[in-house]
């Protein structure tokens, strides 16, 4: 089924570091938007998981951040930028199993070192930029039509 998107739709969410209670709110709203547009369930799920992992990293590692999405009939572009410590070695961070999550975060079941690989796996295009001491930005594109 072709999604019924008239024109382009965009929105953004503020993310606050340490706010685990509202984690997933941005992903849930995005999921509802895509559902309204009649996007395929499997594609919605990929977008939701990629977005949630990005949200979680801001909440766990950064002081604050912003999630921005832009939906067109062809794809959804998600940009998550934060004011956090940045990542020194992106290649290392992208490796499955690598994590610097503190003990109390691990007790919650985060810190498997699978979030960034999950984002990459669930998006059609994935890009991450980071400046140590300034912050990190993740760009993801998910095609809406196979």
């Amino acid at each position: 089924m072709t999604p019924e998107i008239n024109g382009n739709v965009e929105g953004s969410f503020q993310l606050i570091g340490g706010n685990f209670t509202n984690a997933g709110e941005a992903s849930t709203q995005l999921k509802m938007k895509l559902f309204e547009f009649g996007v395929d369930d499997a594609i919605i799920r990929r977008a939701a998981i990629a977005t949630f992992e990005a949200e979680m990293n801001v909440i766990i590692y950064a002081a604050a951040g912003q999630l921005h999405y832009y939906i067109t009939p062809e794809n959804i572009k998600i940009r998550v930028e934060d004011m956090g410590p940045g990542i020194e070695d992106i290649e290392q961070a992208m490796q499955e199993g690598y994590s610097t999550a503190p003990e109390w975060v691990r007790e919650m079941g985060w810190g498997a070192g699978m979030g960034l690989p999950n984002m990459k796996r669930n998006s059609d295009e994935f890009m991450i930029e980071s400046v140590v001491g300034e912050g990190t930005t993740v760009h993801m594109t998910i095609n809406l039509n196979e």
Binding site: F20, T21, A23, G24, R45, A48, I49, M56, M108
Partner: peptide
């Protein structure tokens, strides 16, 4: 796990 984030995982993953 018993904390709030398990709900988002279950819901987003279906």
């Amino acid at each position: 796990q018993t904390h709030i984030n398990i709900v988002a995982v279950a819901s987003l993953k279906g």
